[in-house]
């Protein structure tokens, strides 16, 4: 479903994604894990037509997103790592706008918006402007929006960032359900190893723009002779914090993490 070969992305002198290759099969839940600044979001941006690769090849459901951007866009849905809502619009209006852009027929659109907003407990606040939402509410809305149309491939870039355990549980249950019933291929990133362990069929670990390991959660643990995915992850990527290159969002997240401790 997704094929990436020798993909490279540079920003000036800096190589964010350094010659990576991997494949995601149809109907698979694929987790793309790595420390901060490893190149996960950059890779997703290239896969979703937001960035042009410096070199290398991408195939998305048989299409080349660089050339056939619009056709490729019909194949996937995405929940971004960074905020992407219109704060001046209400929750309902944000959903509706998405539904129209993704050609979801009005009747189905209204039904699904209601179902999803209820699922993520936002229905009562549907007519509130998003700028008045809490961080977690915004995140839930972005997820609900990402699930409004049923794409062939769903990209989830740290979808559970800032979510409470209840909402995280809702999300993964829903994603697994979509994957099983609609055969939606899922490409996700997360920093919660237990989540990856629980939902992913296969995992690729990226560090400093290079893929350092690939396999099922069990295989990765076996390779590194560790008990948990978290230990396997640390064994593969080392335990130093990657903040030299961290952007402002990363810094904010690190602050948030420190506060939570």
């Amino acid at each position: 479903m997704i094929r990436v070969q020798n993909l490279v992305k540079t920003f000036g002198e800096f190589t964010a994604v350094n010659d990576i290759s991997f494949e995601v099969r149809e109907g698979e839940i694929f987790a793309f894990l790595g420390p901060n600044g490893a190149g996960k979001t950059t890779t997703i941006k290239m896969l979703t037509t937001l960035l042009k690769p410096a070199s290398g090849e991408i195939e998305l459901d048989g299409l080349n997103p660089v050339v056939q951007s619009n056709e490729a866009r019909k194949r996937f849905g995405i929940v971004f790592q960074d905020p992407s809502l219109d704060g001046e619009l209400t929750a309902y209006e944000n959903m509706e706008l998405h539904g129209v852009l993704y050609h979801v027929p009005r009747k189905i659109r209204n039904e699904r918006i209601e179902r999803l907003l209820k699922l993520f407990e936002l229905w009562d606040r549907r007519n509130t402007r998003v700028k008045e939402f809490s961080g977690g509410m915004k995140r839930r809305l972005e997820i609900a929006r990402g699930l409004l149309h049923t794409p062939k491939i769903l990209f989830l870039d740290e979808p559970t960032l800032g979510l409470d355990p209840q909402s995280r549980n809702q999300l993964w249950t829903h994603v697994k359900h979509l994957n099983e019933t609609e055969r939606v291929t899922v490409f996700l990133t997360t920093h919660y190893m237990d989540e990856a362990d629980r939902v992913a069929h296969r995992i690729a670990i990226i560090d400093h723009g290079k893929i350092v390991a690939q396999g099922s959660p069990a295989e990765l643990k076996e390779q590194t002779s560790t008990e948990s995915l978290e230990e396997a992850f640390l064994a593969l990527t080392g335990s130093t914090i990657r903040d030299e290159k961290a952007g402002s969002i990363d810094q904010m997240r690190q602050m948030a993490k420190m506060w939570r401790r």
Binding site: T49, N70, R73, F80, P83, S84, L85, D86, Y102
Partner: peptide, 17 residues
């Protein structure tokens, strides 16, 4: 502003020319 606040992304990945 839409670029800064992120909303632009939402429209740029939509399956619309």
């Amino acid at each position: 502003w839409d670029r800064q606040f992120g909303f632009l992304k939402e429209t740029l990945v939509a399956p619309v020319p």
